[in-house]
Design a protein around this nucleic acid. Sequence first.
DNA 1: TGTCTATGTTGACGCTTGTCGATACAGGTG
DNA 2: CACCTGTATCGACAAGCGTCAACATAGACA
Lengths: 125, 125
Amino acid sequence: MSNTKVLPLLESEAPEAVAPCCPPLTERPFTAEEAETAARMFKALGDPVRLRLFSLVASHEGGEACVCDISDVGVSQPTVSHHLKKLKEAGLLTSERRGTWVYYRVEPSVLAAMGKLLTMAPAAA
Amino acid sequence: MSNTKVLPLLESEAPEAVAPCCPPLTERPFTAEEAETAARMFKALGDPVRLRLFSLVASHEGGEACVCDISDVGVSQPTVSHHLKKLKEAGLLTSERRGTWVYYRVEPSVLAAMGKLLTMAPAAA
DNA sequence: TGTCTATGTTGACGCTTGTCGATACAGGTG
DNA sequence: CACCTGTATCGACAAGCGTCAACATAGACA
């Protein structure tokens, strides 16, 4: 989980968001620092519009989507842009401009880290 | 805390009994209702204090903890109570009064559902 | 009964957030 | 060049949220 270099892109503006931040929630109490880091990611998914946008990108063909493909979520265009920026700042998405359009794609390592964080302790079951 | 081995970890038993809310984020775009439901849970974990409280309960012996055991997170007692209420309303914790103390415990099915929601489809690379 | 401790509720405060319209910027096309 | 489309930023507003002190409630025990 430390360096799964599945993606050739690493010029993102989110510097530390990719690092394995925390152990599973059930393993030991979070420190204040860990909680701060992890809460930032959960908070990013804590809005319905952002969650829909993220799901639209994540489920799109090739794991990426142009803004024009996903901007029909019931809010204005500036609001869509605002939420995409938030997701990017949280390290969940990366963006790349290709000609006229901007493409967003999911950061799978972060997604995996959050998933691990939510796993119950396997406890030798 | 007499019963120490109570955590029912339902990892691969019956997936349909675990996911009342949503498919994995990568499977298909969320509907507005699904996003609303899931975002409520993510939002509950989107605060550092709540995340620490949740982690304290989840990692505590027996999967449950008295408020007095976890209330040292740097905020006042009413604030702790407020956050525990939020986690309860989000379905992440349940509470039970036993004599003088109130015990909180994690809702493992919800935790598992959130974890599944974050899983990447293994073929999506 | 009264008192003490543990926890929840209320009300108020400031800060953050989601939203929009207006505007700016980037890139393609004619 | 001018013009158009796609996307980001700005400025402002209302609503929501985290926090606390004060108070209320519940149970234990003398």
